[in-house]
Amino acid sequence: MVQIGYTMMTEQAGPRQLVDHVVHAEDVGFDFSVTSDHAFPWLRTQGHSPYAWSVLGAAAQATSEIPLMSFVTCPTMRYHPAVVAQKAATLQLLSEGRFRLGLGSGENLNEHIVGDWPPADVRIGMLREAVEIIKALFEGGHVSRRGEHFTVDSAKLWDLPDQAPPIGIAVSGDRSCELAGRHADLLIAVEPDRDLVESFDRAGGAGKPRVGQLALCYDTDREAAVRRAHEQFRWFGMGWKVNAELPHPDSFETATRFVRPDDVASAIPCGDDPKGVVEAVQRFVDAGFTEVALVQIGGDTQHDYLEWAAEKLLPELRALTGR
C-alpha cells in the first residue's frame, strides 16, 4: 500500500503556520511529512521562505508520530556538508528517530545567494562528495579530508542518534540515479517516471523506498482553485532542468508569462473531486513509487484541505495498488 505524505511548503506559509499545519496533518492520519528548504519562493505570489531547519526542529517537538523529512536540502553551497550532518543528527535526536535526510544538487534560485552557480556536472560531483562526508560523520569519530570541492578538518558529531537518519537523494537522470542507487537509502523524484526507478534499481537501489511528490489545489470552487494554482504554481511544469537554473522569482515570472490557467489545470488536480488526485497518485504507484507526498497549493487553505483529505481523499488513496 502506498504511503501518503503531507508537504510543509515553506514557500507559501510562515514558520508558525507550517508547524500548525503538520500537527493537523498528523492528527488526520497522513503517513509522513516532508519540508522544502528554500531561500526564495518560486514566485513572489507565494510570499514566504522561512528557515526550514528551524521549522523542522519545532515540528519535531510539536508532533509525536509523523515522520519528518527534508525535501530536499542542498548540502553543497548554502550549507557545508559537515553542517548538514550536524543538523540532521540533531533532528533525528529531537524527533526520536523520525527524521530522514533528503538531499539534492540544488537550484540556482536558492544557492546563488552565496556564490556562482556551477554547471550540472560539477553539481553532481559536489553532491557525491558531500554525501560521502555526511555518511562518514554519521559513523562517529573524527573526519578529515581535502576533496575536490570540500575541506573537512577533524570534524566530529558529538550528539549522534543510535540510528543515523536514512539518506534520500533527489534524481532527474542517469547520473543522479547512479549516485542514489549506490549511496542513498531511498530515491526522491517529482515525476512518475519509471525510467528513473529502473535506473535507480540497476545502480543498487532495488528494494529501497521511492518517494514522489504531487501538487494539487483543493477548493470547493474549482475556478478559484485553478486561479490559485496558476498564481502560485505555474512554474511546476517546466521540468527540473529549467527550474534548477533560473536565479530569481522574477525569472520564473518571466519564464511562465505565457502559461495559461487551463495549462495548469490540465497538469495539477484542481477542485474537490478526489478522482483527479487518485489518478495522479496511481501514476506514481504504477511507476514503482512506494510513497507520495502531496502539496496543497495555498498557505491559507491548509485547514480546509486537511479536513477534506481526512474525509474524502485519504480513504480512496489507501486502496491504491500497482497495476
Rank of each mutant, 00 (worst) to 15 (best):
V2R: 03
Y6R: 04
Y6H: 14
T10L: 12
P15Q: 12
R16W: 00
L18H: 04
V19Q: 08
E26N: 05
E26R: 07
F30W: 09
S33H: 07
V34C: 12
V34G: 12
T35E: 01
S36W: 11
D37W: 02
H38C: 07
A39P: 00
P41W: 04
R44A: 14
R44F: 11
H48V: 04
H48E: 13
H48W: 11
H48F: 15
S49Y: 06
W53V: 14
S54M: 14
S54F: 03
V55F: 08
G57T: 14
A58R: 09
A58G: 12
A59H: 04
A60M: 07
C74N: 11
C74V: 09
V83Q: 07
K87C: 13
A88Q: 02
T90R: 01
R100E: 09
G106I: 07
N108I: 10
E111Q: 13
W117E: 05
D121A: 14
D121I: 10
V122S: 07
I124A: 10
G125F: 08
M126N: 01
R128C: 01
E129M: 08
A130L: 04
E132L: 12
E132F: 00
A136Q: 06
F138R: 06
F138M: 05
E139S: 15
G140N: 09
S144L: 05
G147L: 04
F150V: 07
S154F: 00
L157M: 07
L157W: 02
D162A: 14
P166C: 07
I167N: 00
G168I: 14
A170D: 06
G173C: 05
C177K: 03
L179I: 13
H183F: 10
A184D: 01
D185Y: 03
L186N: 00
L186S: 11
E191Q: 13
P192I: 14
D193Q: 06
V197Q: 03
S199D: 10
S199C: 12
F200A: 11
R202T: 10
V211P: 01
V211D: 00
L214W: 05
L216G: 01
T220C: 03
D221A: 11
E223M: 12
V226Y: 10
R227K: 15
A229R: 11
A229W: 08
E231Q: 15
Q232E: 13
G237H: 04
W240R: 02
W240C: 01
A244P: 01
H248I: 11
H248D: 15
P249L: 11
P249F: 05
P249D: 08
D250V: 05
T254I: 07
T254Q: 11
A255Y: 03
R257I: 15
F258R: 15
F258C: 02
R260E: 14
D262K: 13
D263Q: 07
A267M: 12
D272R: 06
P274H: 05
V285I: 06
V285T: 11
F289T: 12
F289D: 06
T290I: 13
V292D: 04
Q296F: 02
G298D: 11
G299T: 09
T301N: 02
D304N: 09
Y305H: 15
A309W: 04
K312S: 13
P315K: 06
R318D: 12
G322L: 07
